[in-house]
Design a protein around this nucleic acid. Structure first.
Lengths: 198, 198
DNA sequence: GAATAAAAACCGACCGGTCGGTATGATTTT
DNA sequence: AAAATCATACCGACCGGTCGGTTTTTATTC
């Protein structure tokens, strides 16, 4: 049994998660992670080859979470507009619960912008989301619920909206009740995309 | 004459601008800035009390630029939808020309998120933009060109869209011709906000 | 199941190097 | 010559990562 090993590993990840989001990636020292996790530096470098490796692990976890969440929603709701709004609501839930994760996304973007390895790990799923929404919009157009717009463009609109909201919520958390605002904005946006017949 | 003094100061700012955007704030050392600017460390700390002060100076410059740009556009174009789209186009211009500045905004957000001083310097103009667009939308509703929506919500939609596009352009510059995409998305969005009569 | 060997996990002192900032003196400008 | 401006050497703190050694777990043998 490697139970102890898994425990330390998860303790490291947990500590890294909170510290990265609180102080950022660069500002968080490996030593700090270790003390917070109640683990020695040796243990840290036993489990992860480098600080960046921890970051990558976190990233993969977040992305996987989002993927499953999206897929779940898509299966449950047949209506396209409602699907998208529900996804926004899910994002809204993330806003509230996870000050923790949110900053990491930002930090991650910074890293991705400079580090080719991280960029590769990120650009793929990112483009998947683009396609995902384009597919949703196409579906909506096909079933007549949405106006006949360019699905790619509409998808970019949706993704931009989500990203922008995420950013604002991160930047000015107290500026609004973002969980509410997200839904409101999303409905407004989807209203603009709805076909005039319904 | 303080001509020499001004020259060194501007050389420092110029070097800091490019280096911050290329490697980020943390990763850029004061020494690096100095060598790039062809200036000694003593000169640096004669002109700026701290590295952060340079950053703040840059920030104020960007914000002032945006402000004047917006005001200019608003004066030139009386039509609300067109005004907003033109602003988006201006943003598109920024996308292309200024890889330089773009990353700094992101970096700036990171800093702002942690440093109360920077946050204060940033949140004020940010909320100004929010109000600015809310005002524009109100104007559009009043003159009958826009649907009767909540101006605050619509403004948030617009700001989110701009922010989101900015982020995507930064994150995946080669993923699309963003100058074009921005206009397209903005038109799509504004179409959704237009009153049905025109 | 006790003993033992091998492997995995863990510890914490330590290293090379970097960084922001300072101290002090030289050089220019007025 | 006084004041502003710039150059250089330097400091202390810190950081990511290494390393030799210790403890704990697992596998094996009797």
């Amino acid at each position: 049994m490697q139970q102890r090993s898994e425990e330390t590993r998860s303790k490291i990840i947990e500590a890294a998660t909170t510290l990265f989001s609180k102080h950022g990636y660069d500002a968080t020292g490996v030593a700090e992670i270790c003390t917070t996790a109640g683990v020695s530096k040796g243990a840290f470098y036993h489990h992860f080859p480098t600080k960046q490796a921890v970051f990558m692990t976190l990233l993969e976890t977040w992305l996987a979470d989002i993927d499953t969440g999206f897929e779940l929603i898509r299966q449950q709701s047949p209506n396209v507009s409602e699907t998208i709004i529900q996804m926004a609501q899910m994002a809204g839930g993330v806003f509230q619960a996870a000050d923790v994760r949110l900053s990491i996304f930002l930090e991650f973007w910074m890293q991705a912008h400079r580090d080719p390895e991280i960029w590769q790990a990120a650009i793929a799923p990112y483009r998947r989301y683009q396609d995902f929404f384009a597919g949703l919009v196409s579906q909506g157009i096909a079933d007549g619920s949405l106006r006949s717009v360019d699905p790619e463009a509409a998808a970019r609109l949706l993704v931009s909206q989500a990203v922008g909201m995420l950013m604002q919520a991160l930047f000015d958390p107290a500026g609004a009740n973002w969980a509410v605002e997200v839904e409101q904005s999303m409905r407004l946006l989807m209203d603009g995309l709805k076909s005039s017949e319904q």
